[in-house]
């Protein structure tokens, strides 16, 4: 989780990722951010986040993103 928060803070230092739970719903992050977040996560965690995983519920919070990463790491 620490690594993920580091990635998120690097890409969007203006957002409180530890507490925000509606990142997509409140339009705090856009599709450009998601593309960069996915690119970084794919590289750092050696996973492949698929197009079908690009759902708002998977990116609304750091916890949701971490859950997705964990699922893909265990696949």
């Amino acid at each position: 989780m620490k690594e993920l928060l580091e990635i998120l803070r690097t890409l969007r230092p203006d957002i409180d990722f530890e507490h925000e739970t509606a990142l997509v719903d409140k339009a705090l992050i856009d599709s450009f951010d998601i593309v960069r977040i996915v690119g970084e996560c794919n590289d750092v965690f050696d996973i492949e986040i698929d197009v079908d995983d690009l759902l708002p519920e998977n990116f609304n919070s750091a916890a949701a993103m971490w859950e997705l990463i964990q699922t893909l790491m265990n696949e």
């Binding site: 960069r36 690119g39 197009v51």
Partner: peptide
């Protein structure tokens, strides 16, 4: 969006370019 944009945008070369 689903079959061209995202596969290209999420591709490794584009990620490298972004970085």
């Amino acid at each position: 969006k689903d079959y061209l944009f995202y596969p290209l945008a999420l591709s490794k070369p584009l990620n490298k370019l972004g970085r």
